[in-house]
Nucleic acid binder design. Structure first.
Lengths: 195, 195
DNA sequence: TCTGAATCTATAGTGATTATAGTTTCAGAA
DNA sequence: TTCTGAAACTATAATCACTATAGATTCAGA
């Protein structure tokens, strides 16, 4: 079975039609200005079919399966070059992804802007990131000889995964990203630099 | 005007009746097993009245106004004794509140357990905490001679406010709280302790 | 006492999401 | 090739959170 059968191809087509219809309509009228019925119509499927394809609901329509998102980060930790710290690997990997990527094609840029500007979509995006906490914690634990259930490990994983939502809407996302990673690497600098 | 007029008293009574009805029914049948109509019935008001009292919706029913939550933390930072660092003040303050409080009366303990065990309520609780990011950032900035918009300041505020959701469900919440504060104070310890 | 705003009510929506039951279509076995 | 079961799809109806409207009651303050 080299590719997919016609069946799975049709399924993928339907899912893509839904994504594209949703992105187009959201861009035109805003997230709240579009009903799932209109999206289903635009994609020429029934409402029930829409929900069969997108069990997580309206917000998930424009996200391709979120399971992939954390794979990059876990892999970046596990396969980092010798001598590179865990946080260096994470910082580099994240700088190229999500809201921090530069030089995106215009379609993806529109999607990213839509997500950043829409609270419901931002929240869902965060949920997808946070879903990767456990795998990332395991990668970090493996790289530093600790227990994945260690609260310090879990906290680091969580805090790294929160960065897109925390820094993604800043005027200079890259600078913000680096500031947060500096905090995680060195801790909060106290006492402050003397006047 | 020493106390409140009859009018505001009735309003407070209604709101309290709603809270109590919601907490009782949620405890009995679980959050998803109760409809807002049933809660309104139990409190003997109409559905429209319920939503007039609780504009944020079903999840907000068992929370008393969230505006108070961050006041503690901001005050703890601003009024900390001389010589105490910002993070020491925050650690102490938080250890006594939210999911970390010990020796709660049974009613409040039931409520806390319900929140921790119910994803929708946990999320809303987090939202209430996060709403205090700006004031807390201002307090931290004031205490350390920085700009409240500084990403390091915002990140610290955010990360502190995430602690209840991150550590609240741990077997030993106090130990978890301390582990996370240690991370924020000193940063991620790398390289790891040699084998 | 009068007036206006606040509170509450019933009623009827909207919109997301789920449940049900039946139809078409394809994949793989016989 | 033909049969068969599962998968994808459909229409329909229901549930539930939440909002909008318009009218009734009640209290605060002039």
């Amino acid at each position: 079975m080299p590719t997919m059968g016609r069946r799975e191809r049709r399924k993928a087509q339907t899912r893509q039609a839904l994504s594209q219809a949703a992105l187009r309509l959201f861009s035109e009228r805003g997230y709240d200005g579009v009903t799932v019925a209109q999206i289903a119509d635009e994609a020429d499927v029934s409402i029930a079919t829409l929900f069969a394809h997108v069990p997580d609901g309206k917000e998930a329509l424009i996200f391709d399966d979120g399971a992939e998102r954390h794979v990059w980060l876990s892999a970046a930790v596990r396969e980092r070059p010798p001598g590179q710290t865990v946080l260096q690997a994470l910082r580099r990997c994240m700088a190229a992804r999500g809201p921090f990527a530069t030089d995106l094609p215009p379609e993806q840029r529109r999607k990213r802007d839509l997500i950043v500007a829409t609270p419901a979509l931002r929240e869902y995006s965060r949920k997808l990131w946070i879903a990767g906490e456990q795998p990332l914690a395991e990668a970090i634990a493996g790289a530093s000889g600790r227990d994945p259930a260690d609260m310090t490990v879990r906290a680091l994983a969580r805090y790294v995964l929160e960065i897109p939502e925390l820094a993604g809407a800043e005027p200079d996302p890259s600078a913000a990203l680096n500031a947060v990673f500096d905090l995680l690497e060195s801790g909060w600098p106290e006492p402050p630099p003397p006047a």
